[in-house]
């Protein structure tokens, strides 16, 4: 009689999948200006993150209203082009201010994942509370980009500034 072990069935990056669900939900609670409601709905990712491939997977099945989804990867703030949501991975957090400058005249929701970034210009910042992913919302930072935030999103945020 023999026995063998088996391996983790982790074909998915669990954290990235949860973040992707959050991000898709953000598109339901935030309204972009009219000019952004046509063409493709673009989510940009700055830096290397498993979220990029998770979001890419999401584009195969989901749309935002009638807009097809697309995901773009950027290495630096200088590379940025128009996007509806820009996610800055933890290892690129230092580029937040450059990204803010680059997106000055755009309507982009900036999403980060490092402590204190919601006070430094990010609209939404992912945080960890009791091993769970939550998000902080800075309404002023979101509205600065001519975006409207639903009060429901405020209710779902861990903290609102």
């Amino acid at each position: 009689m023999i026995h063998s072990g088996f391996k983790p069935g982790g074909v998915v990056d669990t954290n990235a999948k949860i973040k992707a669900v959050f991000i898709y939900n953000f598109t339901k609670y935030i309204e972009w200006p009219k000019a952004y409601k046509e063409g493709e709905f673009t989510i940009g990712v700055v830096g290397e993150s498993p979220l990029y491939s998770e979001l890419t997977k999401m584009t195969q099945t989901k749309k935002v209203a009638n807009q097809p989804l697309q995901v773009k990867k950027f290495n630096t703030a200088e590379d940025l082009s128009k996007c509806h949501i820009l996610y800055i991975s933890r290892d690129k957090s230092a580029q937040l201010s450059s990204c803010i400058k680059a997106l000055k005249n755009n309507s982009t929701l900036i999403v980060t994942e490092d402590n204190g970034l919601v006070d430094k210009g990010a609209g939404i910042n992912f945080i960890i509370k009791d091993n769970r992913q939550k998000f902080e919302l800075n309404k002023g930072n979101v509205e600065r980009y001519k975006l409207k935030v639903s009060s429901n999103l405020e209710a779902l945020a861990f903290s609102v500034k």
Binding site: G9, V11, V12, F22, N25, L156
Partner: peptide, 21 residues
Amino acid sequence: YNEAASIINNMDYDMDLESLD
């Protein structure tokens, strides 16, 4: 571990945030 990973793997992106919590 696999039980948790399977739940997350099968999540619909459309899932509302209360259910996600």
